[in-house]
Design a protein around this nucleic acid. Sequence first.
DNA 1: CTTGGTTTGTACTGTGAGTACAACATACGA
DNA 2: TCGTATGTTGTACTCACAGTACAAACCAAG
Lengths: 208, 208
Amino acid sequence: MRKLPAKLASQLYGAAELIAERGLDGTKIEDIAEATGIPKATIYYHLDGKNAVLEFLLGDLLDMIAGAVGVAVTSEENARTRLEAAVLAQLGVMLEHPSLCRALVGDLGRATRLPELAAALRTAFYEPIEQLLADGVSDGSLRQVADPAAVALSVFGAITVAGLSAAVEGPSADPSADAARFSAAITELVLDGLATPGSRDQRRGDPL
Amino acid sequence: MRKLPAKLASQLYGAAELIAERGLDGTKIEDIAEATGIPKATIYYHLDGKNAVLEFLLGDLLDMIAGAVGVAVTSEENARTRLEAAVLAQLGVMLEHPSLCRALVGDLGRATRLPELAAALRTAFYEPIEQLLADGVSDGSLRQVADPAAVALSVFGAITVAGLSAAVEGPSADPSADAARFSAAITELVLDGLATPGSRDQRRGDPL
DNA sequence: CTTGGTTTGTACTGTGAGTACAACATACGA
DNA sequence: TCGTATGTTGTACTCACAGTACAAACCAAG
């Protein structure tokens, strides 16, 4: 069941739009069969049901994200620069595949209840950020924060929500331009913060 | 159907944990009936089906958040301070009601497909942030950014993902302490950013 | 005690997921 | 050429569960 023939796999993508639009519940297996051209019996021959269809599609998306981010993270630059690259990479993939992202948002609950997917989600989205933040403290390119885990989570949220919501807004004419725009905004926020220069540091006394 | 008797409303909360755990799909109406003590026929007398149960529960959560944040935002302080208060308020409510939050994550797709809830989601989470960011620029307590909409979205994501994921981790012994902890981390990130003092501003030339 | 809204049990209908299976195709080695 | 294994597909099921119908009971308030 794991190695679905390539032809079928590509046909299955025809169901992504459908699932994104109506949610997995609102989508009948018969609809998927019709949209992809794969007869219901064949779907059941290879896959363990509706959930498996979603699992296959999202697994692929998550692999793409993890891959792109992985490349971005593996450079010789300092952590701050790699963080910027990772943000751009993640948003790039997400905006390239809006209907997969919409399907992901729509069936997040189901996704997190599918153990493999939950792990892939973590690997694709959260862990690279967490790692970069730690690296940045080591190489001095990012600040030490009081609660690294919580901050990593928030950074992850900032990126992911921006990407998902851009995907939900509907496909854009120029995904990579959008990715660059969002990426710049997030980077600006995450690196420099929103406080005005004058008011900065009037809160905490200790710089480290 | 809108004004469900108070007694039933309170009984209905007994279903939140169930729905959070198994998702709405994995929860039979009969299960809800059993968990709440409200017979199936009575549920259908008042509510339009399973979705309406979820809609009722989440509507309430969203109202609480919108309310708490609304209070936090309506003070005489400057926008930066009010932003801190809003973050704390939002996280406070979320951590106070972890199973509602889990239900929200789990059935986010359904929630966004229910028009009333989608609007309530926006009102509760996103709009207050957007407003505060704009206010901060006016009163000088927050920096002007290049793409305010994208930044507002990211801030919203940072807060919300932190809250949701804390809720998903399971209920905590001391919700308000957790809220304070997360709130501090997010505030630190969002206001001061992660760049080290030395490297700050070596990217963009124009301060405005 | 009657009228009108609620409450609830019971029995039903309809839909769609998933299964069973037989017929057929295709490949590949003997 | 045949035989066997592996995939493909149509058809016809089963079964669980959402939602509906309805009648009997209940409980005000006039």
